[in-house]
């Protein structure tokens, strides 16, 4: 009989639509972003970070980058500790994304030094030759508008001081987005807890390998190290590597675990074999330079 009564049909259809809506969309508000979700240490964005976040939104970065690490082995190994609900309580809107044309950014904060980000934003291909990320050096030409930021902080109910806002006068959008990158996922001290401990004695498996073979491992260096240490190991963002005189085992450990508070990420995800190859390549390269 609803087939003859349009108003009844609309009412019934609305009810059908509302059942799933209430259970899966309305009810979760009772559990999500409550006290139980709260994580100590998660703080609102600073004025500069929030401005960077708005640049990220404006430029549609979320079309290519996700911001949630899933509790899956390959995700955690590649990006870091899996994401937790309480880390996102200040995110309006959420920026989890749906596609990884580029890598996930949820744990990017603190991975690289600021200088890495500036250089990468200026020209991603100068650091990662085959990437398809466009250049964003033009963000440097746009200064921030402290008045607008003040209104934003008021809307979001974020704590800010007049000094903090005033300090933004000589900052530009590039400074803002880099500040935002460095905040991502760094509110919980996950880097300390996921540090890899090497167990057992380290033995260089390539002590007997000939020079030519070792030189052929240069591609691993170029892909993973050259962006910071230079193609000729001359140093740029990271220090020069020629003339370093670490033992094999110590150099291996440095590459494998990184220097987290010095801005050098660990490369344990490359696997021990590649890290040994890198170790030998770097030491060998030094020898080459002496000749």
């Amino acid at each position: 009989m609803w087939e003859k009564k349009p108003v009844l049909l609309i009412v019934l259809a609305t009810c059908a639509i509302l059942v799933g809506t209430i259970v899966t969309m309305v009810l979760p508000f009772a559990w999500v972003n409550t006290e139980a979700d709260r994580i100590e240490g998660v703080t609102p964005y600073t004025a500069l970070q929030q401005e960077g976040r708005d640049v990220y939104i404006r430029e549609g970065c979320n079309n290519c980058h996700s911001q949630t690490v899933r509790p899956l082995v390959s995700d955690v190994l590649r990006y870091g500790e899996y994401s937790k609900s309480g880390e996102f309580v200040y995110d309006r809107p959420f920026l989890w994304g749906s596609k990884r044309t580029g890598p996930d950014l949820a744990r990017l904060g603190g991975k690289y030094p600021d200088a890495w980000h500036y250089k990468h934003m200026d020209s991603p291909r100068s650091m990662v030759p085959k990437t398809n990320m466009p250049d964003y050096e033009w963000l440097r030409d746009y200064p921030l508008d402290p008045q607008m930021i003040q209104r934003k902080m008021e809307t979001l109910d974020f704590p800010y001081t007049p000094e903090e806002i005033k300090a933004l006068e000589d900052k530009n959008e590039m400074d803002a987005i880099v500040a935002y990158m460095q905040k991502l996922g760094s509110d919980i001290p996950w880097r300390d807890t996921t540090e890899t401990t090497i167990v057992g004695e380290l033995v260089n498996p390539y002590t007997e390998t000939d020079q030519a073979t070792i030189s052929s491992w240069g591609s691993i260096y170029l892909e993973n190290c050259a962006a910071c240490h230079g193609e000729q190991m001359e140093g740029e963002i990271g220090p020069e590597l020629i003339g370093e005189d670490y033992d094999d085992e110590i150099l291996f450990e440095l590459i494998y675990s990184g220097i987290t508070d010095g801005g050098m990420p660990g490369f344990s995800s490359l696997g021990t074999d590649k890290v040994w190859k890198l170790t030998n390549f770097i030491r060998n390269y030094k020898a080459d330079g002496d000749q």
Partner: peptide
């Protein structure tokens, strides 16, 4: 709304995603 061309979602984080 913050201005005519900028607003922030009424929901935050996981709620907003859902």
């Amino acid at each position: 709304p913050v201005s005519l061309f900028k607003s922030y979602s009424a929901y935050a984080g996981t709620n907003d995603a859902n």
